[in-house]
């Protein structure tokens, strides 16, 4: 999605609506202040707060950080491994199969669904008294309020971001390229690795970054389905809420860490996309 903004018209066509320029400037200033001020405030307060440095290295923060990184990376791997073939199928057959068209419509539901509702729904499915609860219990498996539940919640809310971007990316690869590749003696499987995947790479990277960022920031579904257990299910967003009540320093430390993670992932994505753009002008 970011790609579209990057590639949208480079020509200088600003003159047509020149009379609106002052309104544009004013809106830009207002918006930049609106977003920038809270972030600036966060940084300033963190510098003033005495407990900040202690919080940054405190056990609570480090535990939350480790748990968040581990769960979000596992979630992302699962989303990519399952989401990639799914997105490819949607891109290639989505317009001919009625069932796929219906599925396609529902893929994006978790994006608009309130996360807390997702959490309730997952409890109803996997909870002790949920649809699958008794069956899972009979084989000794309990999912709610475990680290696995954190991963479930993250996948539920984050997967659509990757699947949507990947489907757009694969739709952009004309199957005629894949046909030519096969006439050159390259098997369908190899064609996917050597042609389809690299050609869809910018979309896949964008989707993966968005999905990962969404998993890292996941809160509502997690607290409902996985609870808020330190070291086991208390990811950084949950830890921020908890520490806000006791130690502002620790909460600010967590907030700054998450801000840094978000900024870094955006910078990394933009670097990867630019490297690619430079390679194929």
């Amino acid at each position: 999605m970011r790609m579209m903004f990057l590639s949208a018209g480079n020509g200088n066509r600003g003159a047509a609506l020149g009379a609106l320029a002052p309104a544009g400037v004013a809106a830009t200033v207002i918006y930049v202040l609106f977003i920038g001020l809270p972030i600036l405030a966060l940084l300033v307060r963190a510098g003033q707060e005495e407990g900040f440095l202690a919080g940054l290295t405190g056990p609570l923060v480090l535990q939350a950080l480790r748990l968040t990184v581990v769960t979000s990376v596992i979630s992302l791997v699962i989303v990519v491994v399952v989401g990639t073939p799914f997105a490819l199928l949607l891109a290639r057959q989505g317009s001919t199969s009625r069932l796929l068209r219906v599925i396609d419509t529902f893929v994006e539901l978790p994006i608009v669904l309130p996360p807390i509702v997702a959490g309730v729904a997952m409890l109803m499915a996997f909870g002790r008294n949920g649809l699958l609860g008794p069956a899972l219990a009979s084989v000794g498996v309990a999912i709610p309020f475990t680290t696995v539940a954190v991963i479930f919640a993250q996948i539920f809310v984050a997967a659509p971001f990757y699947i949507r971007a990947a489907r757009i990316g694969f739709t952009g690869v004309d199957p005629a390229y894949e046909e030519v590749s096969q006439t050159l003696g390259v098997s369908p499987w190899q064609t996917f690795w050597r042609l389809t995947l690299p050609m869809a790479r910018p979309s896949l990277l964008t989707g993966a970054t968005l999905a990962w960022a969404r998993a890292v920031s996941e809160f509502g579904a997690t607290i409902m389905f996985a609870g808020n257990l330190t070291g086991r299910t208390q990811t950084m967003p949950l830890a921020i809420m908890t520490t806000m009540e006791s130690s502002l320093g620790a909460a600010l430390a967590l907030a700054i860490l998450m801000l840094a993670i978000s900024a870094l992932s955006l910078a990394l994505l933009s670097f990867l996309l630019r490297r690619r753009a430079k390679a194929s002008p």
């Binding site: 005629a176 390229y177 046909e179 096969q182 006439t183 050159l184 003696g185 064609t191």
Partner: peptide, 15 residues
């Protein structure tokens, strides 16, 4: 299948 036919195919749009 196409990849085992040993046929070179140049399409109209080159691809």
């Amino acid at each position: 299948p196409p990849h085992r036919r040993g046929v070179g195919y140049v399409t109209q749009q080159n691809h």
